[in-house]
Simulated assay, not measured.
Amino acid sequence: MAQKRYDQDYKVQAVKLANEIGINKAAKEIGIAPSTVSGWVKASKEGVLDLGAGSHTPDSALSLTEELMALKKQVKDQSKEIKLLKEENEFLEEASAFFAASRRKSVKTHE
């Protein structure tokens, strides 16, 4: 089954609703799984899902330490992804060069 994609605004509105009436009630009201809403709420608390200006109360806002930790984790994850993508790109370049050379040899032998 294909995973349904929701736009940023929809997620923000769902999180705001969940913060007002609770995750289970919000999920039921908008017709999606509570685990999905819960994930968005968690993402908003970790700073991954931005709810926009003025959306945090002093109780829900991240402390500077928590925000710094979340940003460090995000940078670490992105660095890993960049490294992997560079390795994959290098492999594809080598494979492309190999197949191009192989094709040139094939064309020369058939002439």
Rank of each mutant, 00 (worst) to 15 (best):
K42A: 10
P58Q: 00
V75N: 13
S35V: 01
K73Y: 11
V48C: 06
K83N: 15
V12T: 10
K72E: 13
W40I: 00
Y10R: 07
N19A: 04
D59Q: 09
D9W: 10
E67G: 07
F91M: 12
T57K: 04
V48W: 05
K76T: 14
S63I: 07
E66A: 05
V12I: 14
D77W: 04
I82R: 06
S79M: 15
I32L: 08
I23A: 00
G39I: 04
Q8L: 04
S63T: 11
K73H: 11
E46A: 02
D9V: 13
P58S: 05
L49W: 00
E66Q: 10
K73I: 10
H56K: 11
I21S: 02
G52V: 01
K25Q: 11
G22A: 05
S38W: 00
L17Y: 04
A18T: 06
K16N: 09
L85D: 12
A43N: 08
I82H: 11
Q13Y: 03
A43F: 03
L84K: 14
N19Y: 08
K72L: 13
L85G: 07
E46K: 08
K28T: 09
G22L: 02
L17V: 06
L71Q: 13
E81D: 13
P58K: 00
I23P: 02
K28W: 12
P58N: 06
A33C: 05
K86M: 15
E29A: 14
V15G: 04
F91G: 12
L85R: 14
E20L: 01
K28P: 00
S60P: 03
L85T: 15
K45L: 05
L85F: 08
V41A: 00
K76E: 13
S38I: 03
